[in-house]
Amino acid sequence: MDISNYLYLSAILFTIGAVGVVVRRNAIVVFMCVELMLNAANLAFVTFSRINGDLVGQVASFFTMVVAACEVVVGLAIIVTMYRSRRSASVDDASLLKR
């Protein structure tokens, strides 16, 4: 199997994630889409690591995972707090920054 297919898959996953972030309103779903993008990037890292025959890409993907884990902790906490105060997990309700 051609190894570039992994890259196509990674691109598709990233696009799905990006579109999801832009179009979905539920904070949890947006959050999951962000995770999807991160993992798409991870897939690309690993693929490049395979193509180049070294470990640099794999190491980078571990960094991404650590960052993603941290992000989950902080992000979920924010979402839970927001839900508690507004009884809604819609990102459009949290639009206090406008104007």
Partner: peptide, 17 residues
């Protein structure tokens, strides 16, 4: 320019994309 600043996360995300 101020009109860009509408407060919706998704529009910021779209601009970033």
């Amino acid at each position: 320019l101020r009109k860009i600043q509408n407060g919706y996360v998704r529009s910021y995300a779209l601009i970033m994309v």
